[in-house]
C-alpha cells in the first residue's frame, strides 16, 4: 500500500510465480556432468534438458519477472498484538549496590610514554652492551652481530673472528630487532606498571621485571638463537636489561596519566539493563 512497498495491494501481495524451470535447468546440468562419468549420450540429453530449462526460465523473467497475487491470510491467523503490559526496564546505574563490585582503575599511562621509554631504554641498553663488547671482548661489533644472529642465519654460523668484524646486514638486522623489541617492551611497561603493587613502581619496573625477563631469556635463548646463547655474558646481559628497565620505567612512570574508559564502571561500559520479572505471566 505504502509507497515503499510497490508489491502490496489492499489485501494481497505480489509474489514471484512458482516455476519448475530452475529444477529442470539444474537437473539438465547435473545430467551433463553425470554423462561425463557414464556415457556422453547422457550429457547430450542433459544439455538439451538444461537448454529447455534455461529458455523457459528466460520467458519467466523477460521482459518482466512473472508475479502472482497472493491474498493475505485471514485476520485471525495474522500476527497477534504485542503484549506490553508488565514490562518494566530498569537500568543499572554506576556504583549501584548489590550487584557486583566494580574495580575502578585509576588512570593509565599513555602509550606514547611507552614508545618514548622503550626508545630511550634502547639507547642506554645499546651503550652498555657496546661498552661490554669493547672492554671485555675488544670489538664493538660483537654484541651487534650476536643480536643480529637471531635473524641472519649467515652470522649464526660464523666464527668468532667474523663476528668481531663490521657487518652492514648485521647492523641493520640488529637495529630492527633491538628497536622493535624495545618499543614493544616499553608498551608492555605502560600497561603493566599501574598494576604492580606499592608506590615504588620503579623497583618493579627497573629491577624485578628485568631479572624475571632475563631468567626467561636465559632458559629459552638456546632455542631461539644458539649463537647468542653460546657467547653471551650473563652478567653484562642482566646489567643492560636493568639499565633498560630503569630508564624505560622512569620515563613511563613520570608520564602524566590519562583517563580512559577504564575509569568507567563496568555497567556503564556494557550498558547493562535488566528486565524486572513480568508480573502478568
Amino acid at each position: 500500500m505504502s509507497q515503499d512497498d510497490p508489491h502490496a495491494h489492499n489485501d494481497a501481495v505480489d509474489l514471484p510465480t512458482p516455476t519448475a524451470w530452475p529444477i529442470i535447468t539444474a537437473f539438465g546440468l547435473t545430467l551433463v556432468f553425470f554423462g561425463l562419468v557414464t556415457n556422453l549420450f547422457v550429457s547430450l540429453i542433459g544439455s538439451l534438458c538444461a537448454l529447455v530449462g534455461a529458455i523457459g526460465w528466460f520467458t519467466d523473467v523477460f521482459p518482466h519477472p512473472k508475479h502472482e497475487t497472493v491474498p493475505y491470510v485471514p485476520v485471525d491467523e495474522r500476527v497477534k498484538e504485542i503484549c506490553r503490559e508488565g514490562r518494566e526496564v530498569t537500568h543499572l546505574n554506576p556504583g549501584e549496590e548489590g550487584h557486583r563490585e566494580h574495580v575502578v582503575f585509576g588512570a593509565v599511562h599513555p602509550y606514547s610514554a611507552g614508545v618514548m621509554g622503550g626508545l630511550a631504554g634502547a639507547v642506554v641498553m645499546a651503550i652498555v652492551a657496546c661498552a661490554w663488547g669493547l672492554l671485555a671482548q675488544g670489538s664493538i661489533w660483537l654484541p651487534i652481530n650476536l643480536l643480529a644472529a637471531v635473524g641472519d642465519p649467515g652470522l649464526a654460523n660464523a666464527s668468532m673472528e667474523v663476528m668481531k668484524q663490521f657487518s652492514f646486514v648485521g647492523l641493520i638486522v640488529a637495529v630492527i630487532v633491538h628497536l622493535t623489541t624495545s618499543v614493544l617492551v616499553g608498551l608492555l611497561y605502560t600497561v603493566l606498571l599501574p598494576m604492580l603493587p606499592a608506590k615504588r613502581e620503579w623497583i618493579w619496573g627497573g629491577i624485578v621485571t628485568p631479572i624475571i625477563w632475563s631468567a626467561l631469556i636465559w632458559s629459552t635463548i638456546r632455542f631461539i638463537s644458539p649463537t647468542l646463547a653460546e657467547h653471551v655474558n650473563w652478567m653484562a646481559f642482566v646489567a643492560s636489561q636493568i639499565v633498560f628497565g630503569l630508564v624505560c620505567g622512569f620515563i613511563v612512570y613520570r608520564s602524566t596519566n590519562v583517563a580512559t574508559q577504564q575509569t568507567w564502571s563496568v555497567s556503564r561500559r556494557l550498558g547493562v539493563e535488566a528486565q524486572r520479572p513480568n508480573k502478568k505471566s
Binding site: 510497490p6 505480489d14 509474489l15 518482466h64 512473472k66 508475479h67 502472482e68 497475487t69 491474498p71
Partner: peptide, 10 residues
Amino acid sequence: TASEEYIEVA
C-alpha cells in the same frame, strides 16, 4: 501495479 497483463492471481 498498473500493468495488469503480467499479474496472474494464484
